[in-house]
């Protein structure tokens, strides 16, 4: 029996086991979950060794001590991270961990500032730039798009404004105007969450269709 058939069977039964969750939690579902986690971890370890570590070793220049030392530094720092498994010597891996956190934070902050905040601010301002619009209808659409975007942004920010004053009867109420703006912001937030939920549903629906298609195709392959 070819490997594809075996993997097809395994895939078919595992898919059914996963679908068994519709009738409730069952051992088969747990077996499929544990099997997926185990296979994924093993595969990830293998990938790391073969695609990360071994290439590094193979590229070490043994003739150049400087390059060799520089090439061994990542291995050394990576090895110190293993000391985190033992509390006694976990401090050894703190330096490598600090480097990872520091470098990652700096990179994320730089990338967010340059790649998200500034470009998105410029894009929000360009939303109301009608000169870029080719036609009047496109300008109207762009104006509407810009107004909606601006309104949604303002109202959403107003919704998260929780400053209020205490009334004489002890109750806390926000400013009526701010309360109205917050209500509009709540509408925009609801639409956003609805869109996200729809995207999740569509992603899941697509995955389910792919699985059903796989099952049907497997069955069709056996049925001829």
């Amino acid at each position: 029996m070819p490997i594809d058939v075996i993997t097809a069977f395994i895939g078919f039964f595992l898919t059914l086991i996963i679908f068994s969750y519709l009738i409730g939690d069952n051992p088969l579902f747990r077996i499929a979950v544990h099997l997926f986690v185990g296979v994924s971890s093993g595969y990830a370890a293998t990938v790391i060794c073969y695609s990360v570590l071994l290439p590094r070793f193979t590229t070490l220049s043994l003739g150049d001590p400087v390059q060799l030392v520089i090439g061994l530094v990542p291995f050394f720092l990576g090895a110190t991270l293993l000391t985190k498994l033992t509390p006694r010597i976990s401090w050894i891996g703190s330096f490598a961990l600090a480097i990872l956190v520091g470098v990652g934070a700096a990179t994320a902050i730089g990338g967010a500032l340059i790649g998200t905040l500034i470009p998105q601010a410029q894009a929000a301002m360009d939303a109301l730039n009608f000169r870029s619009a080719g036609s009047s209808s496109e300008a109207v659409f762009k104006l509407f798009d810009g107004v909606v975007m601006l309104t949604g942004t303002v109202l959403t920010l107003a919704y998260f404004q929780f400053s209020a004053k205490r009334a004489p009867d002890g109750t806390v109420k926000r400013n009526p105007i701010l309360e109205l703006l917050a209500w509009g912001g709540r509408v925009f937030i609801a639409i956003t969450f609805g869109v996200l939920f729809a995207g999740v549903y569509m992603a899941a629906l697509t995955a389910m269709i792919e699985r059903l298609s796989s099952l049907i195709n497997f069955v069709k392959s056996f049925l001829g």
Binding site: A44, V47, Y50, L100, G104, T107, A108
Partner: peptide, 11 residues
């Protein structure tokens, strides 16, 4: 293969 390091690895 796999690129570790997240944003730092990407950078």
């Amino acid at each position: 293969g796999y690129l570790p390091g997240g944003s730092a690895g990407v950078l």
